[in-house]
Design a protein around this nucleic acid. Sequence first.
DNA 1: GTCTATAGTTTGATAGAC
DNA 2: GTCTATCAAACTATAGAC
Lengths: 186, 186
Amino acid sequence: MDRRTELLNCAENVARRHGYDGFSYADLAKEVGIRKASIHYHFPSKADLAVALIERYASTHAEALAVIDETSELASDRLAAYVQGYRKALSGGAKICLCAAFSVSRDSLTDEALRELDAFRGNSLNWLEKTFQLANKDGSVSHSAEPAEEAAALLATVEGAQLVARAANKVSDFDQATKLFLSRLP
Amino acid sequence: MDRRTELLNCAENVARRHGYDGFSYADLAKEVGIRKASIHYHFPSKADLAVALIERYASTHAEALAVIDETSELASDRLAAYVQGYRKALSGGAKICLCAAFSVSRDSLTDEALRELDAFRGNSLNWLEKTFQLANKDGSVSHSAEPAEEAAALLATVEGAQLVARAANKVSDFDQATKLFLSRLP
DNA sequence: GTCTATAGTTTGATAGAC
DNA sequence: GTCTATCAAACTATAGAC
C-alpha cells in the first residue's frame, strides 16, 4: 500500500473518531511512522487532506451501493444491507460516518470540501429514493410512503443512530434506534 | 445577567456551531468582551466548562419537556412539540443539539462530562418512551409500536435530521427528514 | 472579578539538506 | 520522499497586580 493511501486510511479513521477539528498532522505522523513535515508532501494543507478524504469516502460509498444493487433484487434486502453498512461502520461505537463527523465542523471546512460533502449526501439520497421507488413496486417494504420522504427519513435515522451509539459507545443503541425501520422489512 | 451565565450562553452557542474541539477560550473572550485569563476565574479548565454546559443544557431540556406535558394532553401534540423544539434549536441550520455536537468529540471529554451526557440521553429517552406509552392509550399516533423502539427511533431521527440540515445549512432538510414521522400525527 | 504577563504546549506550515 | 530545523500563531493554563 502506498504512503498516500496509508495516510488517507489513518486520517479517515481518526477523523471519524474525533471530527475534523479533533485531529492533527501530529496524530497521523505518530501512527503512520513518519514525521509531521513529510505529510505535507502528500497533502500540502489540511484542507487538501479533507477534500481527498471526502472524495475517496464518496466513491467508496458509491461502490458499496452498487454492490448492494448487484447482490440484492428486493428493495427490502437492499435497505437492510444499507442499514447494516452503517452499523458495521460504527466499529462498535467508536466511529461515525465521515459525513456526519465533518458536518459538525462544517465551519472549519473549505468551500470545495463542503461541495464534496453535499455531493456525497446527494448520492446517498438519490440511491435511497430510487430504492424506495422500487419498494413501492415490489411491495417488499410495508406501508411504504413517498420515496423522497422515506429516503430523507432513513438517512437521518442511520446517521442519528450512529450518533447516539457513539455517545454511549454502544452498538446496541444503534440497533435499538433502527429496529423500528427494520421491522417494516420481511 | 451575570458573567457566568453570559459565558455559558456564549460557549453553548459556539460549541453547538463548532463542536467541543472547535472552540477556544479566545473565542469566548472575544465575544463576551473580557480577557481569556478572566474566563479561568469562572471555569478553571475547559473540562469544567464542558460539564457546566451539559448540566445546564440537561436541566433546560428537562424543563422544556415538562412544559410540553403541561401544555399538551395528547401524545401526538407532545411529540409534535418535541420535534418542533429540535427544529427551532437548529437556528436555520447553524447549530445542532449540544449532545450531538459533544458526541462526536466524546474522546476529548472527561468521564464526568460523559456521565452527564449519558444522563441527558437517558432523560430524553425516558420522556419519549413515556409519551409513546401514552400514544398507545390515547391512540393519537398511527400504527404506534413498542414504546422503547419508537423512542429510540425518534431520538435518532431528530438528531440525524439536525445533522443533515447542518451539513447543508438548510432547515428544509430537517423538515424533509421528519416529515414521515409527523405524517403519523393527526 | 478582571487585568497583564507569561509559561509551556501544540498547531499548521515552510525551507532546505539528503 | 523523508528528514531536521524552524516558524508564527493558537492553545490551555497559571501567577500576581489591581
